[in-house]
Amino acid sequence: MDPTRPQDEVPRKLSQKSGDNPPQNFGKNSGKTPARAGGRISADVFRDGGMAPRAEFWLAVRDITPLALGVAIYGLAFGLLAAQATMDALDIGVMGALVFAGSSQIVVVERLVAGAGALSALVAGLALNLRLLLVTASIRDVFAGRPLWQRLLGAHMTTDENWALMLATRARGVKVGYWYLVGGGACLLVTWLASTVCGVIFAAAIPEPKALGMDFAFTAAFIAIARSLWRGRGDLWPWLTSFAVVALAVLGGLLDPSHALVLGGVLGAVVASWNRQEGKQERGQEDGPETGPETGEKAT
């Protein structure tokens, strides 16, 4: 990808346990986050992700706005569906706050409206949530060394959107961590509660997201995020593996989509664990980026 800019591979540091990689390559970050693009932050503050917790929290709230808009559209549509299941504003508010996993909520309520039993609705919803195990496991450095209440809060606040946004922001070289994750999650939670409650109350006036093309909002968002997670050629085979597994499952109808999702992620990671180049990158992260572990991969 983008062989004209081989230094692209430098700022992707997904795991920041040591946290001593100076930010690099700010210049081409498309102007989305000009406030942070100024330069380096001294190494001693990196333990908490490089910024004061409050600053990180509000930065996340700002960065996640386009994704929150997408969530709001889905919240409205879900409210409409929940109204068909005779849920009221309180029911959907309680559900949203306690579950906070939109796609599984939608699936469960949709199954119930379709007349399925409670158990089969639950199973369908939970199958979709299995990926969250991998999602929270993949950002273990965010939770490492945190007090129990912060781990519990952070776990509950982790969704696809703020998890992926945090990784994309890190991939640009901005040192963010726990409070960025929680800030994004809090913003999404408020958005989700407000929009689902509005959806129940104003059910009659809500258009179908698909008619507006809004169902594609998250597809496009995850495409943008995938692009920023590209770490170099070492990612090629793992990513192809994930794609192939899901493509086979979906186009061949071999697997339930939610299982295909988990399997694709896991098998891609397994391929990466065999990958020597990936190993070089990892060691490079621990040594610091200046050692240039990617030099062997600039052959493009």
């Binding site: 997904l14 795991s15 990926r131 991998l134 999602v135 496991a137 993949s138 950002i139 273990r140 696809d160 998890w163 992926a164 990784l167 597809t219 995850f222 495409i223 995020i225 995938a226 997670l229 590209w230 770490r231 990612d235 793992p238 990513w239 593996t241 994930s242 794609f243 597994v245 899901v246 493509a247 979906v250 295909a260 999702l261 988990v262 694709g264 992620g265 896991v266 098998l267 891609g268 990671a269 397994v270 391929v271 990466a272 664990s273 990958n275 990936e278 190993g279 990892e282």
Partner: peptide, 16 residues
């Protein structure tokens, strides 16, 4: 190594 590669692979699975 596997865990470091997991986020990208999950996102690719999701997008696919």
């Amino acid at each position: 190594r596997g865990l470091n590669a997991l986020p990208g692979c999950l996102i690719i699975s999701l997008v696919s």
